[in-house]
């Protein structure tokens, strides 16, 4: 059985920046197959190496400021840190370094990243913007499609 980790990344104090955490919190309330684990990764870096390497496949939901329309969701398969989309906000170095750490420590799970384009973050708030709130169901559906192995 393939063990899948769904990892929501972001800082919920910064509005849209926390979209990954909001998504994973919603997802874990659903009835998920036994081989699926949900984790609110917060802005954690190295601390996430262990749960990521324990999985065969890691599905990351993260925020990006890539200049696109807010609410755009892109599916990416980054292999190295350089493949990680530019301008990931709160945690841009910590998490992408995990990808290199996989190679250096010789345990490499498959990584699928759903990068959600967020609005520029200029205030401290727990709320998502309307554009990003609206795509939460889309993100959840995309993630669930990924769970079928």
């Amino acid at each position: 059985m393939t063990n899948i980790l769904v990892l929501g990344i972001g800082n919920i104090l910064l509005g849209d920046e926390g979209v990954g955490v909001h998504a994973v919190r919603q997802l874990e309330r659903e009835n998920l197959p036994e081989h699926v684990t949900c984790l609110d990764g917060g802005t954690g870096g190295l601390i996430l190496l262990e749960p990521m390497q324990n999985a065969d496949k890691v599905i990351i939901i993260d925020a990006t400021l890539d200049g696109g329309a807010p609410g755009t969701v892109r599916r990416l398969q980054p292999r190295f840190s350089n493949d990680y989309p530019k301008a990931l906000t709160a945690h841009d170095i910590g998490l992408k370094d995990m990808l290199d750490a996989f190679y250096l420590t010789k345990k490499i799970p498959e990584v699928v990243l759903f990068a959600v384009t967020v609005k520029n973050i200029d205030e401290v708030t727990l709320e998502l913007s309307a554009e990003v709130e609206k795509v939460l169901p889309v993100i959840l559906r995309l993630v669930k499609d990924e769970l079928v192995v």
Binding site: D40, G42, L46, I47, L48, L49, Q53
Partner: peptide, 21 residues
């Protein structure tokens, strides 16, 4: 140390229920 640090942080999950946070 990359490998090592994966272990010690488990103390937080044991007493604090989860990790991170």
């Amino acid at each position: 140390a990359l490998e090592w640090q994966k272990e010690i942080v488990k103390v937080h999950a044991i007493f604090g229920g989860k990790n991170p946070h």
